[in-house]
Every structure is written in structure tokens, then in C-alpha cells.
Design a protein around this nucleic acid. Structure first.
Lengths: 257, 257
DNA sequence: TAGTGGTCTAGACCACTTC
DNA sequence: AAGTGGTCTAGACCACTAA
């Protein structure tokens, strides 16, 4: 039934100790040397067992300190409500650029970094926005953090003419941040009306793992979002990478005919 | 910038060869022994590099044969349309049990196994169905396959009184299969009207990895679905485990106020 | 039967943490 | 300074695949 190499057996043994609470979340595992002696194997074999558990997301190890049972993350539930009008709709657009442009295009602020650049649309972006490949688009790349830890990235693309000169093209975070992109589009007569979200999961690339400080064995969820006006005209395409363990997506809808 | 151990460097080297197409999908990697010589390291170090790539889902290895670049899966796009009325609504319920009950509760049929059991509701199921813990519910566990490979599981829970004696409680697949559960509920005056889907991603348990024949480094997407009548009464709770690389979930909705 | 990936050992060295 | 996880080596053995 179970193909049973020593390293797998040790992993299974520790796994069940974690499952039954004998090793509680945050608790420290016995040292590699202790386990090697306990199971009568070499240190390498125990290390391998721990590698298995790490890639399963059950433990993390800190060199010089020990290996610990991973604590469950607080989970955020993401639904359509996060895009609700009342969250971004304002009578007058209060966001505005001031006169001291920062030399750096990246700044840090409570929970969000931002980088805005004018680029040429690639295949995917062009198709999503209904423009030609190579057409100019503004890319607005953000990294969201929570409790000092990065939780997800969100990179939006806008047609240049739609947002040129607006607060969106101001690189400082907070100006167009926090849904403010929708307010800017609305102020230009491009009211966001409909959203399509595509959701898929996969293992992270090495860059993503570094950027989001992902432990081994943590998948990412990639969200691709297209926002359209009431006429069906796409006004924003966005791509987000989320640390999987911190989010749940929730949708409620009537059964279609 | 990049902490650079030999095994990681080798992994990175192979990773870029895969990315630029030098090693095409389905192509065979050089042997461990060849790579060990090429990079001037021990066999173990090359093996470790390949383990990294396996957990990233980039390659799979077959003992005795070689290591191969994984081929991209055909991806199914899942949206609300899969629950559309026209897919399950029938004027008269044609599904029916015949007279020869099978001794086995599990049967195999084109693309689906099924197992039906009467159990007591646990905490999660009870809460979802709005009943008390321990109340009797029918559990209908299915494993869906495609091209002979398992793609996902789907386990539904119904209140006993809602489906007792119906085609749903018939263990043979195909009777209530293929959305037929909705038709049965409708025939009982419990028209499915609204669905809530919760979607999350994580690494598989060992059981799930075995059941879905997941290669190392393949995450799963867990979908929890609650179906309600127009009155808001929950009539089905379902839990599905999907091999992440084979699916995309897609939702289109108007921006709420 | 020759070649393949997979696992294990014993010993070594390293960077890091903790005291 | 002592203890920790992490990595690497050299060599061994195994189960499996393919000709």
C-alpha cells in the first residue's frame, strides 16, 4: 500500500505527531541528530524526511535554531464585495499629485509598494485590453503586505490614453492606491461595471518565492482580472500572485439557464 | 542576490534550458551521471537539483528510464455555466433504479466512480446544510477521470430526507451522476437556485496525491460548494479536490454597490 | 544485461543562532 | 562556544526499464 523507505516512514511518523497535536503549531521538532539516533538512521535520512515535510508546508526550519511546526495563517476571504462602488466612488476625486515628484519610482507605505511604468503591451495584455501588441500601456505594479509580511502582488495595466496625466501615473503609493484606480477611471467617464476573474493555482517561480517570502511547499494562486465598462469596453487588466495559504476566494451566483 | 549552492545552480541551469526550449516538453534530460560529470559534482548533488525541479512541477522522472520535461496539461475552464439548468433540467426524471442492485457500492464507468453512503453529519457538513451534528446525511463520493487519468474528486452531501429513495441513493454511477443530483432535488420540489463556491489552494495530503496520481510539486485546489433553493435553504454541500494544473476557474459579475 | 533514477551511509564543512 | 539545520562527497545497493 505505502511504499516505505526509511525517510518516508520518518516523515509519516512526524506527520502524525503533528496531526494529533503531540507536536503543536509553533512547537519545535526534535533535532536532526536526536531523530537520527531515535530512528537508527543517518543524519541525511532525517534531513530528507524534513525536506518532505517542508515541501508539504507542514514545517519550517531555521538554520541554527531548529525546525518548527508551521502555524496556520489568518485567512482572508475575497469576494466581489472588495470591489464595491462605495469603497472607491467619490463625489469629487480628491486624490491629486503634488509638486515634489520623488526621484525613486518605488516607495514604501503602510502595506503597499508601487511602481508605475509606461511600457508596450505584450500579447496577453494587448488581447485583454483589446489593443494592438506594442501599443503603449501603463503598468502599475504593487506588492501588498500585511503585518509586515508580503501577501500578494497586483499588477494592473491601463491603456495610456485612459489614464495619462491622472493620479494613476503618479508613482507614489496611496495616490491611486486602494481601489483608487477605479475612481480615476470613473472620473474619466470610464465607469467600471463588470469584472471577470480567472483563478488558477501552481507552484511559484523562484522570483515569486523570493518576493513573497514563501516557505517551501507553499503554492501561489494567480488571479487574472479584466474590468469593463457597461459597454463591454475593457479598461483594466490586472494580474495578481497570492500566497495560497492566506486567501480563500468566494463567489455566490444564481444558477444560470 | 541569489544564494548559490551547487545544487541550486544546476537546477537553475536546467530550468533555463527548459524555459528557452532547449529542453522541450516531453524531452529527456541528460542522465544524472552525465550531469554530475558535466558540472563536476557528485551524483547526489545532481539528484538534489532534480528533486528541486520535480517539486516545482517542471520535470518528472521514471526510474530506469530517465527524467523528462513535463508536458503542459489541457486546461478546463470552469464557470457558472457548468451548472446551467439546461444541462440537468428534464421534463420527467428519466433516471431510475433497475432491479439488479450490485453487490459493490463502487463501480467504474466512463470517467466516473461513485460511492454512496449514509453517514452522520460532521461539524462542517452540519453547518453547511443547516442541520445538527450527527444528523443523517447521504454522502456521494465521486472520482472524475479524463483520458484515463483522475482529474478531481467531488463529494456531495444531502440531507437524508431530501433524497431518500431517489436515484441519488442508488450507488451505481450514471444514475444520479453528471449533474443528475440537481434534477433529483428539483423533482422533489427543491429547485437549485443559488450556488456559493469557496476556492482555496494548498499542497495535497499523501492520500490525495495517491488518489489523483499527482506528480511531486502539483498543488490541489479545494472547492467547497453550497447549493440553495430560492428560499435560501441549503440542499447540497459539496467538496471537490482538483489537480491544480488542469483547471482554471472563471467568474464574471457586475461590480456591486 | 546494461543503464536509469532513488535511497542510504559516514563523514566533513559551513553559516547561523543561542547563550 | 556549543548546538542547529543545510549541503556536499564517495561509495554502495536497490528496483526498475529497455534493448
Amino acid at each position: 500500500m505505502t511504499d516505505t523507505t526509511p525517510s518516508r516512514q520518518i516523515a509519516e511518523s512526524l506527520r502524525s505527531e503533528i496531526a494529533n497535536g503531540q507536536l503543536p503549531p509553533g512547537g519545535r521538532l526534535p533535532t536532526v541528530r536526536e531523530l537520527a539516533e531515535r530512528f537508527g538512521v543517518s543524519r541525511n535520512t532525517v534531513t530528507k524526511a524534513m525536506t518532505i515535510l517542508k515541501t508539504e508546508g507542514l514545517i519550517t526550519a531555521r538554520t541554527g535554531s531548529g525546525a518548527y511546526v508551521r502555524e496556520p495563517h489568518p485567512i482572508r476571504r475575497l469576494g466581489p464585495g472588495r470591489y464595491a462602488r462605495q469603497r472607491w466612488q467619490v463625489t469629487t476625486v480628491t486624490a491629486h499629485a503634488d509638486d515634489r515628484p520623488s526621484s525613486e519610482a518605488i516607495e514604501q507605505q503602510g502595506g503597499q509598494t508601487q511602481e508605475v511604468t509606461l511600457i508596450e503591451a505584450d500579447q496577453v495584455v494587448a488581447e485583454a485590453l483589446g489593443i494592438e501588441v506594442g501599443a503603449p500601456v501603463y503598468e502599475r505594479a504593487r506588492v501588498m503586505t500585511r503585518d509586515g509580511l508580503p501577501t500578494h502582488t497586483m499588477t494592473s495595466y491601463y491603456r495610456r490614453d485612459d489614464v495619462e496625466g491622472s493620479a494613476i501615473t503618479d508613482p507614489r503609493p496611496g495616490i491611486a492606491g486602494q481601489g483608487g484606480g477605479f475612481a480615476v477611471l470613473a472620473s474619466r467617464g470610464l465607469d467600471p461595471h463588470e469584472i471577470t476573474e480567472d483563478i488558477a493555482a501552481r507552484m511559484p517561480t523562484t522570483e515569486e518565492a523570493l518576493l513573497l517570502e514563501l516557505p517551501a511547499g507553499e503554492p501561489v494562486v494567480e488571479v487574472r482580472r479584466t474590468t469593463r465598462t457597461v459597454d463591454g469596453q475593457p479598461i483594466e487588466y490586472a494580474r495578481g500572485i497570492h500566497a495560497a495559504s492566506r486567501f480563500v476566494w468566494s463567489f455566490t451566483y444564481p444558477i444560470p439557464d
